[in-house]
């Protein structure tokens, strides 16, 4: 059973890795926001799977926090949009 949890954890890890690639390369802000969400949910899933696999029940709290922060990160990404509160207004490149 433990092997199953770890195997599933590894699989979700690969999927999360793909989300990470989307987050880093973008290209658009929408891609990044969705990827951040996926990273949060995927991270939560990994926390639950591996936490159960290694018998640490408090991992549920980590999963909970990751899910909450994924939503927060989406807003943070908005706050970090170029020009949203720039010292200079957006400069046309």
């Amino acid at each position: 059973m433990v092997d199953f949890y770890f195997g599933a954890g590894a699989l979700v890890m690969i999927l999360t890795g793909l989300a990470l690639a989307r987050l880093l390369w973008g290209p658009g802000p929408a891609d990044r926001m969705m990827a951040a969400q996926l990273l949060g949910t995927g991270g939560g899933a990994i926390a639950l799977l591996i936490g159960t696999g290694s018998g640490v029940t408090a991992m549920v709290d980590v999963a909970l926090l990751l899910a909450l922060l994924a939503a927060f990160a989406a807003v943070a990404l908005c706050a970090g949009e170029p020009g949203s509160k720039g010292i200079h207004r957006e400069r046309i490149k």
């Binding site: 943070a76 010292i87 207004r89």
Partner: peptide, 23 residues
């Protein structure tokens, strides 16, 4: 780490990026 690294520091740095954008 999740609350600070992912949350607080992340927001801090992203806002800084937005404000430094023109530089």
């Amino acid at each position: 780490e999740a609350a600070v690294g992912g949350g607080a520091t992340g927001l801090l740095l992203l806002r800084a990026c937005a404000r430094l954008d023109s530089i």
